[in-house]
Write a protein that binds this DNA or RNA. Structure first.
Lengths: 192, 192, 192, 192
DNA sequence: TATGAATGAGGCTTCATTCAT
DNA sequence: TATGAATGAAGCCTCATTCAT
């Protein structure tokens, strides 16, 4: 929708706090009052944008990843989807910035219903669970595995992608994937 | 200093955005104008508070950790100091919240000189480097190792400490330390 | 009419100022634009409502009061109709509130043509005049008599009916009617 | 105070609703924000103005009325103070308008603490009670007497003073005072 | 150094009104 | 006649910042 796109551009370009309702409306070519026809306030449209954009990423990732090539190990599948998402975020830095920042502060905003905000990550979690189930992979502690892997990827890739600090993403990937392999192998009890 | 302590209490209690200059000054028993004698604006005092508090944590951690018990492996020393910091943050949730949140959004604030903000983490990095040097431990990729370990700890412990999600910190620690051990063993080329 | 009934309900329930055109239209099951087909603005429909409701009261009062029982004195007739109106208003507090408040502020609104607003009271005045004429009652100062009596009744009964302050209406009535009798007897020059 | 005087002028000149905070501040030669240093909102300053102005009237009335001329009857004293207040209001029509209107709508505003608003009339009530006590006058029903007299005077004099309708104040006074005398004589049980 | 009254830009939100359908 | 999305003027209120003392 027009307003959500304008909001997304502004949030990622000038930042959430410096963006005003007036700017969003004007940039969408609409009147200020029109904004309130669709959203309650700035946080409302921010959540909508996050859900919308997060969903897009995962949908794209799943659609564009060959999932059922037979004979792929669980680790290979995990890395395949991870790689797709990292590449996607590397190509859309602003989106990465915005989503990461929002998730972070969103978790601390008391008025927020977390379900809405973290919908994107929830989806990823669901997806990995499905991956595990379908391949009949058993992990020592599935819940902690998923949690740790997602946090590891998200936090380490942030400044690597955004600032190329401490190294560029292409250099960091093999290092990261090796760690993921170590953890996976350590945790897998039985595969297939 | 009076103003920094007031600011810290308010930032951690009611949040950065909901804290006003007037509140800080009043809570410090000073006039509003006096604030501007010491700090340029709210972000200025926030940075000062972060540096001050981060430094305190690390100083405490180092002071309270027996570092040079001979015969301790690099991994044991790394876990010892990590454990101290995690325990400290678990006992000071509000500080953890504040520092994590600020670091996150601070990285995206353009008027910020990152050196100041990340001083705390810089110190930790420096410290680990020193640890490696002193023990004559050689890692495959020292820089990426430190970066990855710090990000892993920081990001995974956040919701574990703050919300006990997905599990409580005491349950998560062994899981996390095992992963750190895996990574460390994989990366160590030679010890002593 | 649909819109007038909706407006009346809202004006008396939530108050004139807190009622919006949107609320009136929606509650009438009509579109916002339709409102403007029938009324210029909120004040326009308010006046229409007052005239409509005031007229209803007096019509009811006259219809339900036996007027021409022969042998009734002027005072008895005056009290009979007064009593009917007071009972009616006591049974319709919200209407009393609304009409009283509107008359008060209506008199000071410059865009208002007073004739419209005070139509209700005009009618009452007309009616009393008729009563006097028919019974061939002569008063010392007929105009001031009517004016004073109406204002006396209206102002004293307001908080008595609305808040039972300083006493309940049933307790106040004999006191008030006694005063009306005193005034009437003092003013009557000749009856029949 | 500067703001209260500006507010009073604007409320009486252009009306309460059409007066904006910006107008009050500007007309006082102050910034908009300064208003909020002293008053919570428009209703807050309105109440302050009413209390201030009402108090002024009664104080002036009492100060300027010879109260203890010995040998004056209760009725004479009552008329003396009434006459002073009516004259005062006739000379300050705008104040009369404002106070009458505000009292009316104030009574219906739910957020209002009535004690504050009706302070002025309370004072008048207190004064009349004192008058009765001092002269050892006993009335049949003192409470209803005071209530009725105050409402009678206030409501009948309003349009007489503001619009000279139905007659001018000088013509209405003898008529009104005669009625007050009738009521008083009827109600007095013993004097002195 | 310390003050705090005064400021006013700036953001938020409401809602009467219009107009294309 | 009827609609309701779109509008934007208008008002409210906050709060960082200044400045005279």
């Amino acid at each position: 929708m027009l307003l959500m796109n304008s909001a997304y551009e502004l949030f990622t370009d000038v930042g959430f706090h410096k963006t005003t309702i007036a700017m969003i409306a004007k940039s969408a070519g609409l009147g200020k009052g029109t904004f309130y026809l669709y959203f309650r306030d700035k946080e409302d449209i921010r959540d909508a944008v996050i859900v919308y954009k997060s969903g897009q990423i995962l949908k794209d990732a799943i659609d564009n990843t060959v999932l059922d090539k037979p004979g792929m190990s669980f680790y290979d599948r995990l890395i395949t989807i991870t790689d797709y998402i990292i590449n996607y975020l590397a190509d859309n830095e602003k989106m990465f910035k915005f989503i990461s920042k929002s998730l972070g502060s969103g978790l601390l905003t008391e008025k927020k219903d977390n379900d809405t905000v973290s919908a994107g990550l929830m989806d990823l979690e669901e997806f990995i669970r499905g991956l595990l189930k379908k391949r009949e992979v058993v992990l020592k502690n599935q819940q902690l595995f998923i949690y740790t892997i997602i946090e590891l990827i998200n936090s380490t890739c942030y400044s690597v992608i955004i600032d190329s600090e401490p190294v560029a993403i292409d250099e960091y990937k093999p290092y990261l994937y090796n760690i993921i392999r170590l953890i996976t192998e350590d945790q897998v009890v039985s595969e297939q």
